[in-house]
């Protein structure tokens, strides 16, 4: 149960029940869709970017607690970041989720540090992040965690 409590920390359960920025954004400047065909998770990510800075971020979709909490926390963190900083955060997060290694202060994202011990759940945690990365680069092709 210890590893499992690590995976499902209270903050994750909170974000799952009350996701932040869980809404459509009509005036989004970029938008991308992500899909995890294996489990059916779907996310639409909305960003409002001005002068290379993320002014607003939100998401809609369905998914497990891990994917929902990950998306929710991500939208709170990338707001007010420059595109470049968001890209760096994506790289750091990706590394933490896939290897368990962290460099620098990952802050709130540390609640997802236990995911790497559950290889089958890694794709749940990274779906929203890959989708965000695609949205940043104007890549509107459907993000699929099966290929990335």
């Amino acid at each position: 149960m210890d590893d499992l409590r690590d995976l499902y920390q209270q903050l994750i359960l909170d974000h799952n029940q009350n996701p932040q920025n869980f809404r459509e954004m009509i005036d989004a400047t970029s938008k991308a869709e992500g899909h995890n065909p294996l489990c059916g998770d779907e996310i639409t990510l909305f960003l409002q970017i001005e002068n290379e800075k993320i002014i607003d971020a939100s998401f809609k979709g369905t998914g497990c607690a891990i994917s929902k909490a990950s998306a929710s926390i991500m939208t709170t963190l990338i707001k007010d970041l420059t595109v470049n900083k968001a890209e760096i955060l994506f790289e750091q997060f990706h590394k933490m989720i896939t290897t368990g290694e962290t460099n620098g202060d990952m802050g709130k994202l540390m609640v997802l540090a236990g995911v790497y011990k559950f290889p089958a759940r890694v794709k749940c945690a990274v779906l929203s992040w890959h989708t965000m990365n695609n949205a940043l680069h104007g890549n509107t092709e459907l993000t699929s965690t099966e290929i990335s």
Binding site: L4, G40, I66
Partner: peptide
């Protein structure tokens, strides 16, 4: 209600119980 099947399957697995969670090849 309010629990995604993947979360449920993860918890059941922790108790040694294997169930399937997904679309069962029937999207």
């Amino acid at each position: 209600e309010n629990i995604h099947p993947h979360d449920l399957a993860q918890f059941l697995d922790n108790d040694g119980i294997a169930i399937r969670a997904g679309h069962h090849c029937a999207q």
